[in-house]
C-alpha cells in the first residue's frame, strides 16, 4: 500500500469517529434548546409574545436560504469546485450575519418589553439570545473554513471541517425551526 493510500484510509477511519463526536455534541447541545422550549410553554402557556410577524418570517427565510447555501458549499467541495464552494460559504456567512442583524439589531429593539419585564421578556431574550450566540459561533466557524479554503486546505477526499461547519449550521437552523413557531405563531396575544 502506498503512503497516500494509507493516509486516506487513516483519514476515513478518523472521519467516522469525528462524525460520531459531532453528533454527540449536537445531541447534548440540543438539550439546552429543548429546556428553553419547555420553559417557554411552562412560563407563557397559551400566550405568545407580541412580536413583528413579518420580521419573524423574514429572518426565518434568511436562515433557511443560508442552510441551502451551506449544503451547496459541501456539495461543491466534494466535487472539487473550489470557487463554487468559497462563494457558497461566503453567502452562507453573509446570510447568517443578516439573520443576526434582523434578530438582535431589529427584533430586540422593536420588542415592546425588555429582558427584565416579566416572563415574556425573559423567555424571548433568553431563547433568541442563546440561539443568536450559536449563530455567531457558526459564522466564526464558517469564516475559519472560508479562510482555510482560500489557502487550498480542502479537497474532494478530505474536507471534514467543511462538513462539520455545514452540519453545525444546519443544527442552528433546526433549532430555529422549532423556536420560530414557539415564539411567533403558537398561542394568542
Amino acid at each position: 500500500m502506498t503512503t497516500p493510500e494509507a493516509a486516506l484510509t487513516t483519514y476515513k477511519q478518523k472521519l467516522a469517529n469525528n462524525r460520531l463526536g459531532l453528533w454527540l455534541f449536537i445531541l447534548s447541545d440540543s438539550f439546552v434548546f429543548a429546556a428553553l422550549l419547555v420553559t417557554r410553554f411552562y412560563l407563557l402557556g397559551d400566550k405568545r409574545p407580541h412580536l413583528e410577524q413579518e420580521l419573524g418570517l423574514i429572518v426565518t427565510s434568511v436562515l433557511l436560504i443560508s442552510s441551502f447555501f451551506a449544503n451547496r458549499a459541501e456539495v461543491q467541495i466534494s466535487k472539487g469546485n473550489r470557487k463554487g464552494f468559497l462563494t457558497s460559504i461566503l453567502i452562507t456567512m453573509l446570510l447568517g450575519i443578516g439573520f443576526l442583524v434582523g434578530v438582535v439589531g431589529f427584533e430586540w429593539r422593536l420588542a415592546p418589553f425588555g429582558p427584565a419585564d416579566g416572563p415574556e421578556g425573559a423567555v424571548f431574550f433568553m431563547m433568541t439570545g442563546m440561539h443568536a450566540f450559536h449563530v455567531l459561533t457558526g459564522v466564526i466557524f464558517l469564516f475559519i473554513v472560508f479562510r482555510n479554503g482560500l489557502k487550498g486546505h480542502y479537497s474532494p477526499e478530505k474536507h471534514w471541517a467543511v462538513e462539520a461547519a455545514a452540519n453545525y449550521w444546519h443544527f442552528v437552523d433546526v433549532v430555529w425551526i422549532f423556536f420560530y413557531p414557539a415564539l411567533y405563531l403558537i398561542g394568542s396575544l
Binding site: 476515513k12 477511519q13 472521519l15 467516522a16 460520531l20 442552510s67 449544503n71 477526499e157 474536507h159 437552523d173
Partner: peptide, 19 residues
C-alpha cells in the same frame, strides 16, 4: 428534511467514513 437531506444523519451509522 434538514436532518436527512442537509445533515445526512445516515452517515453517522457508517463504520468507515466517506464524504
Amino acid at each position: 428534511l434538514v436532518l436527512i437531506y442537509f445533515m445526512h444523519i445516515g452517515r453517522v451509522f457508517r463504520s468507515e467514513g466517506e464524504h
